[in-house]
Design a protein around this nucleic acid. Structure first.
Lengths: 218, 218
DNA sequence: TGTTTTTGTTCTACTTTAGTTCTTTTTTGC
DNA sequence: GCAAAAAAGAACTAAAGTAGAACAAAAACA
């Protein structure tokens, strides 16, 4: 029915007249549609008038009227929109930023619905994730520094050697390497200034596994 | 349909007649719209009458009647749409992933247009950025590990103490802390197993400053 | 009523903005 | 690689906006 350019222009005219109350000029249109010359706009408008989508008041400037809108989008436009939406869906995901870890409280307790952290979708594919700001230097030895943001995949079990968010005695959340030893669990810091904690498995609950890390400088 | 001036005037007439109960005079209108002569108002009103937005009762003063207003989208709808657009803007940006650093070749040489790295837009606001995969452990001391991806802001100068991508002798790119000492430049690794390199400034070119770091586990 | 004041209309001259037409260049589809 | 379509660009014409003044017509007022 309409070419993609015609469709795009018609929608732009319709949108701006309805939003601003006045009709765009050819120059504004050429910028909106991505042309560098308004002669192209002239041709598009002639085509839209001929097909009875637009009416123009003769010998007037900024005097176009949308007669009707097409019921069908050109397939090229549909494809373009799909691509954009995919980019949005695939590209960026917001996950809750729960606050600072090692703050002495269970993670759920410090959840703040307003704090969000944006990460590439690839980072958080398949699973539920949340972010934490690292406080302290207990994991410095493996490059997890004070102030880093870690992205945690929700999980309640972990493999030996995983870096996990562990909740001790239902009150203290901490980021450590985990190791099971029979009925006991080792929470291993990665900094010689800290000591390994050995606890009965019943006192330790895994709340997630370290999945990635983001650090900003300056 | 309307020009901006026409729209502005129409809205003013509509507003004041509804508020005060009587139609503004041409002089009041010219002040409201920002003109210095009322002849312009006359022309605008003629245009609005012709387009059937206004009617004037002949041979009367202050006797204009608003026939209709341009149909606008409700502002709530506009706000909604704007929000969606913002989401797109805040989304992900692709920056070139130039390859591995410390690979012994200038960064430009290893650029591969196909390799891209997606980061949240906030990470790369204001400036040109690229990504590099870190190879080696020379910066382990400050938590930059083998396999990490660093996001570099393009720059050709740096402050003392910045972590920079430095090109030595136009052939070897490396990520190090930089320090200027008179005519010489120190490239400082953050690992005791490596030695500080002291080079004449002429042999070292800064290619970017470390901006952020992303690490994936597993 | 006539007079004064306010308001609207018309005209000229000019600047800026907008629309049209045409030629040349670039893209696109076969 | 060629022909057709689309786009860019320049040059031109037309409309919109601006200003000032002179004047005519309503409204207000004694």
């Amino acid at each position: 029915m309409l070419t993609p350019k015609q469709y795009k222009l018609l929608m732009f005219i319709n949108k701006t007249t309805k939003e601003t109350g006045c009709c765009p000029s050819f120059d504004e249109m050429k910028d909106a549609v991505g042309l560098k010359s308004k002669s192209g706009i002239y041709a598009l408008i002639e085509a839209l008038v001929e097909r009875n989508f637009l009416r123009k008041l003769p010998h007037k400037a900024r005097a176009l009227e949308v007669v009707r809108l097409p019921k069908l989008k050109p397939s090229a436009v549909i494809a373009e929109e799909k691509k954009k939406e995919d980019a949005l869906l695939n590209a960026m995901v917001e996950i809750p930023l729960y606050g600072k870890i090692a703050a002495g409280t269970p993670i759920e307790a410090i959840a703040n619905e307003n704090d969000k952290f944006s990460v590439p979708y690839e980072m958080v594919r398949g699973g539920q994730y949340y972010a934490l700001k690292v406080e302290g230097d207990s994991m410095e030895g493996i490059g997890i520094l004070n102030g880093d943001t870690v992205i945690i995949k929700k999980a309640d079990t972990a493999q030996n050697g995983d870096i996990v968010v562990a909740l001790v005695d239902n009150c203290e959340a901490t980021l450590k390497q985990i190791k099971k030893e029979g009925p006991e669990v080792l929470l291993i810091p990665k900094n010689d200034a800290y000591e390994v904690r050995r606890l009965p498995a019943s006192r330790v609950k895994v709340q997630g596994i370290l999945s990635s890390l983001v650090r900003s400088y300056h």
